[in-house]
Amino acid sequence: MEDLKQLNACQIIERAKTYESRMKSLEKSISEFISGGSELADTEWIKQEYAELKKIIKKEHDYFSKQKNDISDISQVHSAYQNGILECSAWGFSSRIGSGINQDLFNSIEEAEYKLTKFLADLDEWNN
């Protein structure tokens, strides 16, 4: 994983928006599957994407858990991103990898997306 201290605020925003976009896409696919449009939903992709996002967010959480990797004093964007990742990992992705594609999985992703973006949403950089 790259050193997040080296990224500028724009790069941090882009990183968070990429994660948010992936989560929204996953939510859409899960929703289609749950509502009976299973022929439109790629169940293997849903499982793989969930596992990959959970793993990525966990790696970033572990990165921030080390004191030397604290980026909260670089900028408001860095601080909001760090707080979002920590909460996203702690409260989102609560479904087990390999569990069924159901409402619990959807809620897990929805919570992860909310936690990731809740601190960033108040920043001008996020809304531009």
Rank of each mutant, 00 (worst) to 15 (best):
L4N: 07
E125H: 08
K17E: 07
I97C: 03
D104E: 14
K17N: 12
E113N: 15
K28Y: 12
R22P: 06
N128K: 10
M23E: 01
E60F: 04
G92D: 05
I30S: 03
E113Y: 13
W126I: 01
L7F: 09
S25W: 10
L120H: 00
E20A: 15
Q103I: 15
R96K: 12
E49N: 02
A121P: 03
I46A: 10
S72W: 04
I30F: 02
F106N: 04
Y81P: 07
E87W: 05
A51F: 06
Q67C: 07
G92H: 04
I71F: 03
A112R: 01
I97D: 03
L116F: 06
I56W: 12
S38Y: 04
S94R: 07
N128Q: 09
I101G: 00
K115S: 11
E111V: 15
S21Q: 13
E39G: 07
Y19D: 12
D3I: 01
Q103V: 15
K5Y: 03
H61F: 14
Y114T: 06
S38F: 03
K17F: 09
M1T: 11
Q76Y: 11
D122W: 06
G36H: 00
G92A: 04
S99Y: 09
D122E: 12
G84K: 00
E14V: 05
K68C: 09
E49D: 01
I109W: 06
D104I: 05
R96T: 08
W126L: 00
T117S: 12
D42V: 03
W91G: 11
K55V: 07
W126Y: 05
Q11E: 15
D124N: 12
A80S: 02
M23N: 02
T43E: 15
D62V: 06
K68L: 08
